[in-house]
Amino acid sequence: MNHTHPDAGQIEIHGHARPLIVDLGSVPYPDLNARCYYHFSSEGHNQINVAGRPQRWDLEHEAHCTHSAFDDELGGWWQIDLLTCTSRSRT
């Protein structure tokens, strides 16, 4: 899922319409400092984090689904490559 938060690779789990592993959603944080609020940042999402560095979430650094399969009777699986959005920028 992605709702303009740095949440690439995150999953949620719902069972019998109950939220069991969740996204924390959005709160009315100031847009200017959004990344300082955990509802927006990588801190508030179900994902891998390296050394506390936030995920990048601009269009040039999107994650990519590399493989997937789905079946109505069996379920599904997918692989997501997060290298682009988690790698350090060159400075």
């Binding site: 999953i11 999402h45 179900n46 390296v50 050394a51």
Partner: peptide
């Protein structure tokens, strides 16, 4: 996701050097 009730997640990380790697889950 294996229907009806199983989810398995594998997170693989490879870095150029040793750093802290954290997996976080938010329960409902």
């Amino acid at each position: 996701h294996l229907l009806p009730n199983i989810v398995v997640v594998l997170d693989d990380v490879q870095l150029l050097r040793r750093e802290p790697i954290r997996l976080r889950w938010h329960p409902g």
